[in-house]
Write a protein that binds this DNA or RNA. Structure first.
Ligand SMILES: [Mn+2]
Ligand SMILES: [Mn+2]
Ligand SMILES: [Zn+2]
Ligand SMILES: [Zn+2]
Lengths: 138, 138
DNA sequence: TAGTAAAAAGCAACATAGTTGCAAAATCTT
DNA sequence: AAGATTTTGCAACTATGTTGCTTTTTACTA
């Protein structure tokens, strides 16, 4: 897994540093999304808060992770699929927040539905976040 | 102002106070949603920050306004329709954020679509936020 | 309409979240 | 290994949100 981390960083022309390895590793070793707080708790003992902010920002810009808006106003981050490139994301899938275990899932196979918007509205991007009970908690 | 501020407050058994009149008035006198910052800027000169927080919280609890999650992690608030009651919201509509004028619209006529979730996932609530250009900006 | 109980507002202090500039340290390139 | 470049850590700062307590305002009733 540590090898994968370095490869992903290289593929995105990012220099290999401790914080990037650690934080990217956190995403790879578990399925759900992570809130900034989670990351800070699990990586922030080794790294400065500012470094965590800047690392996440870099990963988002490079298309390595994407953000997920949630109702409680705490941004979550999750790994992108390979087709996301620098400055251009393609994460057109639905997200699911379990109200029991509080895990946020990327439902990669559930495509964002089409919407019939009123006349004059042109949408470039649609975010869908479902809330409920996940397969492990029911 | 279509509806009377005082009447809405009375109907929700809320006492009539300066901050509640002012803040509810802000929502009634314009079509879009308001971020906390907007409200503080436009009402906060007369009232304490804490009062603004508590007033918004009260309005949400009473079903007078609802929150809208957005990608930039700043909660917006918008008026509910009449069928929202204390402790029980029914705002199952799509929201639209214009990337040009930055207004957030409640598209009351666009109902949240059904989703085919993977086996085992049971959703209780779905949020849909579309981003793009609104009818006034195109 | 004045008196009173209850509710809300204001204030201060605090906690958490996020940003910026800059010097020191680490990484990459040759 | 040396130098150029990038990244980090630190400090200081702004913004956002919360809590306990006192004063003020509101709603109600005598
Ligand atoms: Mn996702
Ligand atoms: Mn709405
Ligand atoms: Zn769960
Ligand atoms: Zn617009």
């Amino acid at each position: 897994m540590a090898k994968d981390v370095k490869e992903i960083l290289k593929n995105n022309s990012l220099s290999i540093t401790g914080s990037r390895e650690k934080i990217l590793g956190l995403f790879l070793e578990q399925p759900g999304a992570l809130a900034h707080g989670d990351i800070e708790k699990r990586a922030g003992e080794k790294f400065d808060r500012v470094t965590v902010y800047r690392t996440l920002q870099t990963f988002v810009e490079k298309g390595i992770i994407h953000t997920i808006p949630t109702a409680d106003n705490s941004i979550r981050y999750a790994l992108c699929k390979d087709d996301c490139k620098e400055g251009h994301h393609h994460d057109h899938h639905v997200h699911f927040v379990c109200t029991q275990c509080n895990i946020t899932y990327c439902l990669d196979d559930v495509v964002t539905p089409e919407l019939k918007l009123p006349k004059g509205y042109i949408s470039t991007h649609i975010e869908v976040v479902a809330e409920g009970i996940c397969k492990n908690c029911k």
